[in-house]
Amino acid sequence: MSTHERHPQLSAYLLGELSAEELAAFERALAEDPDLRGEVERLRPVIARLEALPAEAWEDAPEPPPLRLPGEPRAASQAAPARRERRWWRQGPLTLRPAFAALGAAALLAAGIGIGFAVDDGAGPSAGAPSAAQQRTVALAPLRQGLGAHGRALVADAGGRERVTLRLRGLPPSRAHQFYEVWLMDANGPLIAIGSFRVGADGRATIELPLPVEATRYQYFDISVQPEGNDTAHSGDSILRGATA
């Protein structure tokens, strides 16, 4: 005969559903039956873990995205494109992202100067510059002590779509397998990577980027040093930052 058959109130005891009289009777049985005590001790942690589960843990788990692993097992890749989809803000001309080195971007960057959007040391944004009323300039301050880097971000409305021109000085020259990335960021919110570039020995760069959203929807422009690789997340190594407005 099992413990439960001998003690049909076992579950009610564990769940705290016994009346005072039933409880007293069960506790007498507990005192006399080491097997029952052992069973109670085995099952109590299970009850504790079930009681600790948040409501969302009981709800249906969300549908996961399709498995997308470049160049990986056939069965997995059949269900998805051979390379990772980019988010919408990484589509279009902003393809200069060494995180997608396997796609050839690294080869472009190896040349030392990014292409796909302007990286130069020119005097200003491209032709068709908007009027002063349609543009604003914000300062970018260094986030590393002792770093003489500084810069400005000129945000301009070009035909209903914003562009930013970043003029950066005093940046450490890009090391091998590293690049700079420009982000729009909020406090504790998602980040948007808007473009990548490398810096030569002069530590200077002027970069013009179309913005996928209005800059002021985010609080800050941020420029980070990123390692090459497949990880598209912010490295946490920010160099410059400035408010978008």
Partner: peptide
């Protein structure tokens, strides 16, 4: 890793991120 990469934005941009 992902949570640690969410760099908090300091009120003072000169603060370490």
């Amino acid at each position: 890793d992902q949570l640690r990469r969410r760099v908090p934005v300091p009120q003072d941009p000169s603060e370490s991120p």
